[in-house]
Protein backbone atom coordinates (compact mmCIF):
# COMPACT_ATOMS: atom_id res chain seq x y z
CA UNK A 1 0.00 0.00 0.00
CA UNK A 2 1.18 3.57 -0.72
CA UNK A 3 -0.11 7.16 -0.47
CA UNK A 4 -1.81 7.14 -3.91
CA UNK A 5 -5.49 8.17 -3.47
CA UNK A 6 -6.85 7.80 -7.01
CA UNK A 7 -9.79 5.56 -7.94
CA UNK A 8 -7.35 3.23 -9.68
CA UNK A 9 -5.31 2.89 -6.50
CA UNK A 10 -8.55 2.13 -4.65
CA UNK A 11 -9.33 -0.77 -6.99
CA UNK A 12 -5.79 -2.04 -6.61
CA UNK A 13 -5.76 -1.79 -2.81
CA UNK A 14 -9.11 -3.61 -2.65
CA UNK A 15 -7.96 -6.70 -4.59
CA UNK A 16 -7.48 -8.82 -1.43
CA UNK A 17 -11.03 -7.91 -0.32
CA UNK A 18 -12.37 -8.85 -3.76
CA UNK A 19 -10.56 -12.17 -3.55
CA UNK A 20 -11.95 -13.02 -0.12
CA UNK A 21 -15.48 -11.83 -1.00
CA UNK A 22 -15.50 -14.08 -4.04
CA UNK A 23 -15.23 -17.21 -1.90
CA UNK A 24 -17.67 -16.05 0.75
CA UNK A 25 -20.28 -14.79 -1.73
CA UNK A 26 -20.03 -17.95 -3.79
CA UNK A 27 -20.74 -19.93 -0.61
CA UNK A 28 -23.57 -17.54 0.23
CA UNK A 29 -25.19 -18.09 -3.17
CA UNK A 30 -24.89 -21.85 -2.82
CA UNK A 31 -26.35 -21.84 0.69
CA UNK A 32 -29.18 -19.52 -0.37
CA UNK A 33 -30.09 -21.74 -3.30
CA UNK A 34 -29.99 -24.78 -1.03
CA UNK A 35 -32.46 -22.94 1.25
CA UNK A 36 -34.78 -22.60 -1.74
CA UNK A 37 -34.22 -18.90 -2.46
CA UNK A 38 -34.47 -17.85 -6.11
CA UNK A 39 -31.06 -16.72 -7.59
CA UNK A 40 -32.51 -13.31 -8.50
CA UNK A 41 -33.67 -12.81 -4.92
CA UNK A 42 -30.18 -13.82 -3.72
CA UNK A 43 -28.76 -11.17 -6.07
CA UNK A 44 -31.21 -8.59 -4.69
CA UNK A 45 -30.24 -9.59 -1.14
CA UNK A 46 -26.53 -9.09 -1.77
CA UNK A 47 -27.20 -5.83 -3.64
CA UNK A 48 -29.28 -4.32 -0.82
CA UNK A 49 -27.66 -5.78 2.31
CA UNK A 50 -24.05 -6.46 1.26
CA UNK A 51 -23.02 -7.85 4.67
CA UNK A 52 -21.96 -11.49 4.57
CA UNK A 53 -22.53 -12.62 8.14
CA UNK A 54 -25.96 -10.92 8.37
CA UNK A 55 -27.00 -12.60 5.13
CA UNK A 56 -26.12 -16.08 6.40
CA UNK A 57 -28.24 -15.42 9.49
CA UNK A 58 -31.03 -13.97 7.32
CA UNK A 59 -31.11 -17.12 5.16
CA UNK A 60 -31.35 -19.36 8.22
CA UNK A 61 -34.20 -17.26 9.64
CA UNK A 62 -36.05 -17.20 6.32
CA UNK A 63 -35.78 -20.97 6.30
CA UNK A 64 -37.54 -21.23 9.68
CA UNK A 65 -40.18 -18.68 8.51
CA UNK A 66 -39.54 -16.27 11.39
CA UNK A 67 -41.56 -13.06 11.79
CA UNK A 68 -40.31 -10.36 9.40
CA UNK A 69 -39.88 -7.88 12.25
CA UNK A 70 -37.74 -10.36 14.20
CA UNK A 71 -35.47 -10.94 11.19
CA UNK A 72 -35.14 -7.19 10.56
CA UNK A 73 -34.30 -6.58 14.24
CA UNK A 74 -31.68 -9.35 14.21
CA UNK A 75 -30.13 -7.91 11.05
CA UNK A 76 -30.00 -4.47 12.65
CA UNK A 77 -28.23 -5.82 15.75
CA UNK A 78 -25.75 -7.83 13.72
CA UNK A 79 -24.94 -4.78 11.59
CA UNK A 80 -25.06 -2.16 14.38
CA UNK A 81 -21.26 -2.17 14.51
CA UNK A 82 -21.40 -0.43 11.11
CA UNK A 83 -22.63 2.66 13.00
CA UNK A 84 -19.45 2.67 15.07
CA UNK A 85 -17.30 2.14 11.98
CA UNK A 86 -19.23 4.91 10.19
CA UNK A 87 -18.63 7.43 12.99
CA UNK A 88 -14.92 6.61 13.00
CA UNK A 89 -14.55 6.80 9.23
CA UNK A 90 -16.80 9.85 8.71
CA UNK A 91 -14.25 11.99 10.58
CA UNK A 92 -11.90 11.58 7.61
CA UNK A 93 -14.55 12.66 5.11
CA UNK A 94 -15.65 15.94 6.72
CA UNK A 95 -14.90 17.87 3.49
CA UNK A 96 -16.76 15.44 1.21
CA UNK A 97 -20.19 16.56 -0.06
CA UNK A 98 -23.35 15.03 1.40
CA UNK A 99 -24.27 13.09 -1.74
CA UNK A 100 -20.78 11.65 -2.11
CA UNK A 101 -20.74 10.78 1.60
CA UNK A 102 -23.99 8.85 1.23
CA UNK A 103 -22.63 7.06 -1.84
CA UNK A 104 -19.47 5.94 -0.10
CA UNK A 105 -21.19 5.10 3.20
CA UNK A 106 -23.64 2.85 1.35
CA UNK A 107 -20.78 0.47 0.53
CA UNK A 108 -19.14 0.48 3.96
CA UNK A 109 -18.13 -2.95 5.30
CA UNK A 110 -15.80 -4.23 8.04
CA UNK A 111 -13.21 -4.88 5.36
CA UNK A 112 -13.41 -1.59 3.45
CA UNK A 113 -13.33 0.22 6.81
CA UNK A 114 -10.23 -1.67 7.91
CA UNK A 115 -8.56 -1.04 4.57
CA UNK A 116 -9.32 2.70 4.76
CA UNK A 117 -8.03 2.99 8.34
CA UNK A 118 -4.88 1.21 7.26
CA UNK A 119 -4.53 3.51 4.24
CA UNK A 120 -4.59 6.56 6.53
CA UNK A 121 -1.29 5.45 8.01
CA UNK A 122 0.29 5.96 4.57
CA UNK A 123 -1.46 9.22 3.64
CA UNK A 124 -1.04 11.31 6.81
CA UNK A 125 -4.75 11.02 7.62
CA UNK A 126 -6.12 11.94 4.19
CA UNK A 127 -8.73 9.91 2.32
CA UNK A 128 -10.58 10.77 -0.88
CA UNK A 129 -14.01 9.90 -2.23
CA UNK A 130 -12.47 8.47 -5.42
CA UNK A 131 -10.13 6.17 -3.54
CA UNK A 132 -12.73 4.82 -1.12
CA UNK A 133 -15.41 4.46 -3.77
CA UNK A 134 -12.98 2.55 -5.99
CA UNK A 135 -11.91 0.40 -3.05
CA UNK A 136 -15.53 -0.36 -2.10
CA UNK A 137 -17.03 -0.84 -5.58
CA UNK A 138 -14.69 -3.64 -6.60
CA UNK A 139 -15.67 -5.93 -3.68
CA UNK A 140 -19.33 -4.95 -4.19
CA UNK A 141 -19.37 -6.11 -7.81
CA UNK A 142 -17.38 -9.22 -6.95
CA UNK A 143 -19.92 -10.00 -4.22
CA UNK A 144 -22.91 -9.56 -6.59
CA UNK A 145 -21.37 -11.64 -9.37
CA UNK A 146 -20.24 -14.42 -7.02
CA UNK A 147 -23.59 -14.56 -5.17
CA UNK A 148 -25.44 -15.01 -8.46
CA UNK A 149 -22.89 -17.52 -9.74
CA UNK A 150 -23.11 -19.47 -6.48
CA UNK A 151 -26.91 -19.50 -6.62
CA UNK A 152 -26.74 -20.78 -10.22
CA UNK A 153 -24.17 -23.46 -9.40
CA UNK A 154 -26.47 -24.44 -6.55
CA UNK A 155 -26.64 -28.19 -6.31
CA UNK A 156 -23.45 -28.84 -8.30
CA UNK A 157 -20.97 -27.91 -5.59
CA UNK A 158 -22.24 -29.11 -2.25
CA UNK A 159 -19.51 -28.33 0.24
CA UNK A 160 -17.55 -25.15 -0.63
CA UNK A 161 -15.98 -25.08 2.85
CA UNK A 162 -13.81 -28.03 1.90
CA UNK A 163 -11.49 -25.70 -0.01
CA UNK A 164 -10.89 -23.33 2.90
CA UNK A 165 -12.54 -20.32 1.21
CA UNK A 166 -14.41 -19.42 4.38
CA UNK A 167 -11.06 -18.67 5.99
CA UNK A 168 -10.35 -15.87 3.49
CA UNK A 169 -12.19 -13.32 5.60
CA UNK A 170 -10.52 -14.47 8.83
CA UNK A 171 -7.13 -14.28 7.10
CA UNK A 172 -7.98 -10.71 6.15
CA UNK A 173 -8.71 -9.78 9.75
CA UNK A 174 -5.43 -11.38 10.87
CA UNK A 175 -3.59 -9.38 8.23
CA UNK A 176 -5.42 -6.16 9.00
CA UNK A 177 -4.93 -6.53 12.77
CA UNK A 178 -1.19 -6.99 12.25
CA UNK A 179 -0.87 -4.21 9.66
CA UNK A 180 -2.84 -1.85 11.91
CA UNK A 181 -0.64 -2.74 14.88
CA UNK A 182 2.49 -2.29 12.79
CA UNK A 183 1.63 1.02 11.14
CA UNK A 184 -0.48 2.89 13.72
CA UNK A 185 1.57 5.86 14.88
CA UNK A 186 -0.93 7.32 17.34
CA UNK A 187 -1.27 4.57 19.93
CA UNK A 188 1.65 3.12 21.94
CA UNK A 189 2.51 -0.47 20.88
CA UNK A 190 2.25 -1.77 24.44
CA UNK A 191 -1.26 -0.33 24.82
CA UNK A 192 -2.29 -1.92 21.52
CA UNK A 193 -0.99 -5.31 22.69
CA UNK A 194 -2.91 -5.00 25.96
CA UNK A 195 -6.09 -4.18 24.02
CA UNK A 196 -5.62 -7.11 21.64
CA UNK A 197 -5.15 -9.41 24.65
CA UNK A 198 -8.21 -7.99 26.42
CA UNK A 199 -10.29 -8.40 23.27
CA UNK A 200 -9.24 -12.08 23.26
CA UNK A 201 -10.29 -12.56 26.90
CA UNK A 202 -13.61 -10.74 26.37
CA UNK A 203 -14.41 -12.80 23.26
CA UNK A 204 -13.61 -16.06 25.07
CA UNK A 205 -15.76 -15.39 28.12
CA UNK A 206 -18.36 -13.30 26.28
CA UNK A 207 -19.19 -16.29 24.07
CA UNK A 208 -20.86 -17.88 27.08
CA UNK A 209 -23.58 -15.25 27.16
CA UNK A 210 -23.76 -13.10 24.02
CA UNK A 211 -24.45 -14.56 20.56
CA UNK A 212 -21.88 -14.19 17.76
CA UNK A 213 -21.85 -10.91 15.91
CA UNK A 214 -23.56 -8.97 18.70
CA UNK A 215 -20.62 -9.94 20.91
CA UNK A 216 -18.27 -8.19 18.46
CA UNK A 217 -20.16 -4.94 19.05
CA UNK A 218 -20.16 -5.33 22.85
CA UNK A 219 -16.45 -6.24 22.94
CA UNK A 220 -15.61 -3.26 20.74
CA UNK A 221 -17.56 -0.85 22.96
CA UNK A 222 -15.91 -2.22 26.15
CA UNK A 223 -12.44 -2.52 24.59
CA UNK A 224 -12.43 1.11 23.43
CA UNK A 225 -13.53 2.30 26.88
CA UNK A 226 -10.74 0.25 28.44
CA UNK A 227 -8.32 1.82 25.97
CA UNK A 228 -9.31 5.37 26.96
CA UNK A 229 -8.99 4.55 30.67
CA UNK A 230 -5.61 2.80 30.36
CA UNK A 231 -4.23 5.58 28.17
CA UNK A 232 -5.11 8.21 30.76
CA UNK A 233 -3.93 6.24 33.77
CA UNK A 234 -0.75 4.55 32.54
CA UNK A 235 0.44 6.14 29.27
Amino acid sequence: MNDNLTRRAGWHDALPIGFSYFGISLALGIVGRAAGINPWLMLLMSALIFAGSAQFVLISMLLTQDQIIAIVAATFLINARLILLGITLALHFKQTSLLKSILLASLLTDESFALAINKINFTKGRLTFSWFHGAALLPYFVCLAATFLGAQLGGLLTNPERFGVDFAVVAMFIGLTYLQFESDRQLPKKLQLILIASSFVMIYFGMMVIPGRLLILVVTLCGCALGVILKHVYF
Binding site: I117, Q180, S199, F200, I203
Partner: peptide
Protein backbone atom coordinates in the same frame (compact mmCIF):
# COMPACT_ATOMS: atom_id res chain seq x y z
CA UNK B 1 -12.63 11.08 19.33
CA UNK B 2 -10.09 9.46 21.62
CA UNK B 3 -12.52 6.57 22.20
CA UNK B 4 -12.96 6.08 18.45
CA UNK B 5 -9.17 5.86 17.99
CA UNK B 6 -9.34 2.42 19.55
CA UNK B 7 -12.12 1.07 17.31
CA UNK B 8 -9.95 -0.37 14.49
CA UNK B 9 -7.53 -2.46 16.55
CA UNK B 10 -10.23 -3.77 18.91
CA UNK B 11 -12.83 -4.65 16.27
CA UNK B 12 -10.35 -6.29 13.89
CA UNK B 13 -8.79 -8.46 16.59
CA UNK B 14 -12.26 -9.30 17.97
CA UNK B 15 -13.43 -10.46 14.53
CA UNK B 16 -10.33 -12.65 14.27
CA UNK B 17 -10.59 -14.13 17.78
CA UNK B 18 -14.30 -14.90 17.44
CA UNK B 19 -13.44 -17.24 14.55
Amino acid sequence: LEYLNFVPIVIMSALWFSS
